[in-house]
């Protein structure tokens, strides 16, 4: 059976750093950039552990600002 691999693309300028996606992610893929901010001064979210993402879309579904775009592909073993 193939494994699902996902990728999250973040619209950095739109992100408000509310961290709802971080607590929702079942694989703990996402984290806030501690050192960097966007033009509004928010610590935006990024993929800290991209290898674990399954592309389940849970983060994008709870995101209030529609920041996240999800891609998913089935990796053949």
């Amino acid at each position: 059976m193939g494994k699902m691999k996902g990728a999250v693309v973040v619209d950095v300028e739109r992100c408000k750093g509310c961290e709802l996606c971080i607590v929702t992610c079942p694989q703990q893929v996402l984290a806030n950039k501690e050192a960097q901010v966007n033009s509004k001064g928010y610590h935006y979210v990024y993929m800290e552990r991209p290898e674990d993402c399954t592309g389940c879309t849970n983060c994008a579904v709870v995101c209030p600002d529609g920041v996240l775009t999800i891609y998913r592909v089935k990796e053949e073993v």
Partner: peptide, 15 residues
């Protein structure tokens, strides 16, 4: 990651 981010693999985007 760049191989995954292709238009044909899109599953969710802002309406």
């Amino acid at each position: 990651i760049q191989e995954i981010i292709q238009p044909e693999n899109l599953v969710y985007e802002r309406t």
